[in-house]
């Protein structure tokens, strides 16, 4: 099942997934575990913030539209925090297309230039192989 080389316990990469839909969490959790990653799940931006501080992940998969705080609010908080700003982030949403989330589209949502564009933006429904390759590219 695993397409990743065997790693020691210390070398296993940690990925945090944040999505308010339990279905998506279960899906991505299963998918990433099957490919040798350790997964930290959070159902809201608030829960994610608490768990991040306990266990800093190597990569973050972030939904945008969530009740209460949105994914973008959490992203802005991370990217302006010296401890978390190097965590690569992949946005995953059914809400927009990649165009709305890169370049000018992104700057419309986040005018603050201190906040860089995310490493990647993926649209739901996910293409499994491109999702996995994006994860792999950004986690090294």
């Amino acid at each position: 099942m695993s397409e990743q080389p065997e790693r020691n316990e210390e070398e296993v990469r940690k990925i945090m997934i944040v999505d308010d839909e339990p279905d998506i969490l279960l899906y991505l959790d299963t998918l990433l575990q099957d490919h040798g990653y350790r997964v930290i799940k959070a159902e809201s931006a608030e829960e994610a913030w608490d768990k991040l501080r306990e266990d800093k992940p190597d990569l973050l998969c972030l939904d945008i539209m969530m009740p209460k705080q949105s994914g973008i609010a959490l992203y802005k908080k991370l990217k302006t925090d010296p401890y978390f700003k190097d965590v690569p982030t992949i946005f995953i949403s059914a809400f927009s297309t990649a165009k709305d989330f890169t370049g000018r589209g992104f700057r419309k949502l986040v005018p603050d230039r201190e906040v860089p564009e995310p490493e990647a933006y993926l649209e739901k429904p996910l293409n499994i192989s491109s999702f996995l390759s994006t994860v792999q590219e950004n986690i090294e």
Binding site: M1, E21, D23, I24, L26, Y27, L28, T30, L31, D34, A94, F95, E123, K124, P125, L126, I128
Partner: peptide, 24 residues
């Protein structure tokens, strides 16, 4: 379209999880 995309993701995820569970 947005709603359907979410549902499709859910269906795709369901299929993957069923497959993964059966394999394991």
């Amino acid at each position: 379209a947005h709603g359907i995309k979410n549902v499709l993701t859910g269906l795709e995820g369901g299929m993957y999880v069923v497959n993964s569970g059966m394999k394991k």
